[in-house]
């Protein structure tokens, strides 16, 4: 959902005549973050299944909203006419995708550094405390809902950045960026790599996308059979995700 919001935001300001990529990216991130913070007041009220369903419900609402506002979003045809200006007025987004690739990689790198800082900060410690034991955190005087709201806003903003990146590098935004399938893909990648680990997310994404690309290249009709088997095998034999599995092997060696 926030991915799509960021994508639409970046896309729409570009259509309306502001195609400078870096400022557009930052604005999209901030926009998604602000929306994320507002939504987080709802989200932190619920847990477990209700939590999943409320987020899903909000996602569908946004999707239907975008569909119902074709004058702003282009409806099902997708947003057209996005023109992204060259980065620093120098590097054009070309057919070969070098610029887009380097740009996306640079943003990933910065986000990664930021996330690492965050995890190791006192705020990150507080979050880990919440993960280990939700009930104990308020007991030691920590405002756990405040922390959760903040991290929710931050992650929304990062998702928004990703969406904006997609909008800028492909010059297209359509309803599927808000869809359930898109969110499901991300969750799958995350669990595949191993949750709660920064590197896990990166590894999971790479494995999922490479596997999908290769399998779909071999047979576009049945590739999801292979993906399904991959997911089942990972869960059965590597319950902590691929990274968790690797970490355990390393531990054993030592």
């Amino acid at each position: 959902m926030f991915f799509g919001l960021g994508a639409y935001f970046a896309g729409i300001i570009s259509v309306r005549g502001w195609g400078e990529p870096i400022s557009g990216l930052l604005m999209a991130g901030i926009f998604a973050g602000v929306i994320g913070y507002v939504v987080s007041f709802l989200i932190t009220r619920v847990q477990h299944l209700a939590l999943i369903m409320v987020t899903l419900g909000l996602g569908f609402l946004t999707y239907e909203l975008a569909n119902a506002m074709p004058w702003l979003t282009g409806g099902t045809d997708g947003l057209r006419g996005i023109r992204t200006w060259p980065i620093f007025g120098q590097f054009k987004f070309d057919l070969w995708g070098y610029t887009g690739y380097a740009y996306a990689l640079a943003v990933l790198f910065l986000c990664f550094l930021l996330s690492r800082r965050l995890v190791n900060s006192s705020f990150g410690l507080a979050l880990r405390g919440i993960r280990e034991n939700v009930k104990r955190m308020p007991a030691i005087g920590a405002d756990h809902k405040g922390h959760l709201r903040l991290i929710y806003a931050i992650s929304a903003s990062i998702a928004g950045l990703a969406g904006a990146l997609m909008a800028q590098t492909t010059n297209t935004v359509a309803l599927d960026s808000l869809s359930f399938e898109r969110s499901a893909d991300v969750v799958v990648m995350l669990i595949l790599g191993g949750t709660g680990r920064l590197y896990g997310a990166i590894l999971g994404t790479i494995i999922f996308l490479v596997a999908r690309d290769q399998l779909a290249g071999i047979n576009p009709q049945y590739w999801y059979f292979g993906i399904g088997i991959l997911l089942m095998v990972v869960v059965l034999f590597m319950p902590k995700g691929i990274l968790g599995f690797l970490a355990r092997i390393v531990d054993r060696r030592n």
Binding site: T76, G78, T172, V173, A174, L175, D176, S177, G217
Partner: peptide, 13 residues
């Protein structure tokens, strides 16, 4: 052959 998996313009692109 390449699969887009649904109405997905960014994937098609």
């Amino acid at each position: 052959k390449r699969d887009t998996g649904g109405p997905a313009p960014d994937v098609a692109r």
